[in-house]
Amino acid sequence: MKILVCVSVTPDTTSKIAFKDGNSKFDDAGVQWIINPYDEWYSLVRAIELKEKDASISIHLVTVGNKEAEAVIRKALALGGDEATRINAESNDSYFIAAQIADIANKGAYDLVFTGKETIDYNGSSIGGMVAELMNAPYISLATKFELNGNIATVTREIEGGEEINEVVLPLVVSCQKGIAEQRIPNMRGIMAARTKTLHVVEPIVIDALTNVVNYEMPPAKAGVKLVDADNVAELVRLLHEEAKAI
């Protein structure tokens, strides 16, 4: 069985968000890059757990990004996974990225493709669904539990106000979120092993981007907090009712 884990490289969760070149580009000065937390903590770790139960499973990582992404991919390989592929391209068009990943997934005949539920930078939640469409495979989004029994997957997914349990025969694409696995920290053995794992670099297939970012904006600054005395809770209720019209 072959699992393909899609990995995106994103700014650290505590990064200061700023833009440059007339607000047309993300300002990456001083930014620390990490594996997108949903890709790392949830989808990659769940794939590793599956492999720990069944050694015949192989895990391949795939990312679309430039050379700088490689250091982060090595970190992902330190957690687990057998090898990685970097598609040498930069884009924030979800169709372009999904088409690159789907090309790898189709050629490699993967049984299972894991993505995070979204990236923390672009917040698209699009890649999994698109890859599934381009593979002509079923797709389950926002998974909180994932179990395998032979080639049948039992997946719990988030729905509004609850959860739904799905059963589906592989191949399958799943977007993973909290609940499916717990965060792990790579150990020294993993870090050493990652250095010698294969990292393929391939050129992208020709795909026209269907969207482009014109520019970025920062949200308007908050006016500042209005503090109400703890002994005057009625005043807070008045403000929320009359001024904010929120209650």
Binding site: G124, G129, I140, T211
Partner: peptide, 24 residues
């Protein structure tokens, strides 16, 4: 709507139709 159903379906539809998508 960019809710649980939208997140499952919208991008798939976009890929099917080769339509550009903006989520959120």
């Amino acid at each position: 709507s960019h809710n649980q159903t939208g997140k499952s379906v919208a991008a798939r539809v976009a890929a099917n139709l080769k339509a550009g998508i903006v989520t959120g």
